[in-house]
Design a protein around this nucleic acid. Sequence first.
DNA 1: GTTAGCACTCACTTAACACGAGTGCTAATT
DNA 2: AATTAGCACTCGTGTTAAGTGAGTGCTAAC
Lengths: 348, 348
Amino acid sequence: MSLNDRKIQILQAIINDYIETAEPVGSRTIAKKYNLGISSATIRNEMSDLEEMGFIMQPHASSGRIPSDLGYRLYVDHLMKKRELNLEEQRYLQSLISRDINQIDYLMEETAKAISALTNYTTFISEPVGQRARIKQIRLLPLDTASVLLVIVTEDNFMKNHVIKLSSVPDEDKIFEISMYLNQAFQGCALLQIDQTVISRVQHELGEYKGLLVPILKALQATMEAAERVQVHMSGAKNILAFPEFSDISRAKSLFQTLEEKDVLVTLLEECKSNDLHVLIGSENTMQSMKDCSVITATYKLSDDTRGTIGIVGPTRMDYSQVISVLNGMVHNIEKVLRSLSDNHKDG
Amino acid sequence: MSLNDRKIQILQAIINDYIETAEPVGSRTIAKKYNLGISSATIRNEMSDLEEMGFIMQPHASSGRIPSDLGYRLYVDHLMKKRELNLEEQRYLQSLISRDINQIDYLMEETAKAISALTNYTTFISEPVGQRARIKQIRLLPLDTASVLLVIVTEDNFMKNHVIKLSSVPDEDKIFEISMYLNQAFQGCALLQIDQTVISRVQHELGEYKGLLVPILKALQATMEAAERVQVHMSGAKNILAFPEFSDISRAKSLFQTLEEKDVLVTLLEECKSNDLHVLIGSENTMQSMKDCSVITATYKLSDDTRGTIGIVGPTRMDYSQVISVLNGMVHNIEKVLRSLSDNHKDG
DNA sequence: GTTAGCACTCACTTAACACGAGTGCTAATT
DNA sequence: AATTAGCACTCGTGTTAAGTGAGTGCTAAC
């Protein structure tokens, strides 16, 4: 029994129909709707074979067939036609580029919104982060009579400010001097590298202003942690409720629960970060509550090192073709916006 | 027909029972469960009166009664006992304080999470923002050979960094000079005040480095906008699905839709900002999709001017008493954490 | 190898019916 | 005059039974 051309045509018909209608597909439907030039009885025989091979299944005896995860996998890997974006979709993407978005979190929000609006699936997206958070510059500025401003810039241009309150603020020259010293001491350091040796050296050199050291180290730590903490934005969670496969509230609820936990999303996105495009179908998901969902992720790159991921979650009966084309378009898009952003100014 | 003591007792019983069970409450239930010393028949008579007065209603003839919005209003304003936090709740709040949270957005996330976990309602919270975004300080720092760093601090200590790329970077002294000049020119300005007069003056004075001016103005604008854009965090949306009043998927969906739009939430929270505590019951909500929800908001203050709001959404059959006590506790809590945060350092 | 025909399965719908919680009214009781 | 017991009535809910239809698998004919 081999997966001949006709079987593939039938499988394709089943998948297309099921993606569209969410109803099990019967042999007669295929015979009528898709002109394969064979009768429903023949189709029935082929379907029986396809079931035996594991590509389709029956939700219950005497019902039509639905694709199995394996069926979808075959579809995604070999059968699916790559779709081009249609006009409306292109317009949508365009409108996002042309708008003057100058903050990363805002860009992320809007991107997620656009994708979920376009696909009707739930979308999440992680902000671009670099792998190594190293300190590029440290600056100390006098702010007012009781506080100085500490500015930390990491190598991937992630920035952070901290106001440090002091009982007495040194004069400007002195601050400049300390600033220079700090810069030299910490430049190129990753957080892990700031060990006791460095600290005690700084402690010694900065003995005169040791009131400064504690808040500075604290600020440094907070900055490095923040630089490494991945921000995730989600949009279109409501779409889940529109799919008949989640008309069972308890299912919908458990999926929601999972999607609401940022850690889970971060882990999921991080795992897929190495691939440009990643499709996880149904049981391929490790998360229990996502066993009947599919997840498609695409990674965008700002540089080799700095990247983020967009993910889409929907029922396994998902319009893979559309989603992938939208994701590809959006990755292109977001890379463009981010590049223009980082040319002008970069925000922490 | 007056709202005598007995009627109030009965109303209270109905509300308590309905909050707990979500089932219409009948006269026999009250007679059995609450020892009011009167028979079910008497209760029936009183209930008939209460219905005429508009405090309760029947979902359909020959069913028990449920509280009307008016009934809840009376309950919230006059009948409800202020509850104290129980041990578990106090422990929860404590654990939040004691952890070392040093970033506002993280604090917000965690706060929202804690409240939704504690109450089982959907929670959202807006970050603290000052009313007036005025510029306190502007600084320009040399960053590397092709870029300078612009630091803007607003009066409520909101900060923003911007990298400005230049074809040629002036020497340090010159940058310092420009920095000082900018500081003087823009200090105390609100965005609206930066009109053509100021710009042309700066344009004139900075003629030599006019390549700087455009990005600076752009950065200024972005900063002021960001300072005024309110960030909202939400948690526990999944809880909505647990309430029988939203077992109708389409209802749940339309509520989700509303809650997902940050603008709506921001508007809602902003409207309640002047009150310490605000309760909107059912039809008192302007938003159509929230007509059978109640919203309770509490405002926390960092200073007179800088405040944010926590909001809880649930069915009108909400445990008002619990929610209000949790909110009060949390406001206290968050104010404490924020104050300690702003003493050490403040993040944009 | 393909197809027509047919018996069979099974989810889904509808109607009928009984059940029970709850009400409103009336008459008896306190 | 207020309260309560009693009773008829309403109406949502749950159950059962029958009917419907989409779909299958098998067999025999083409």
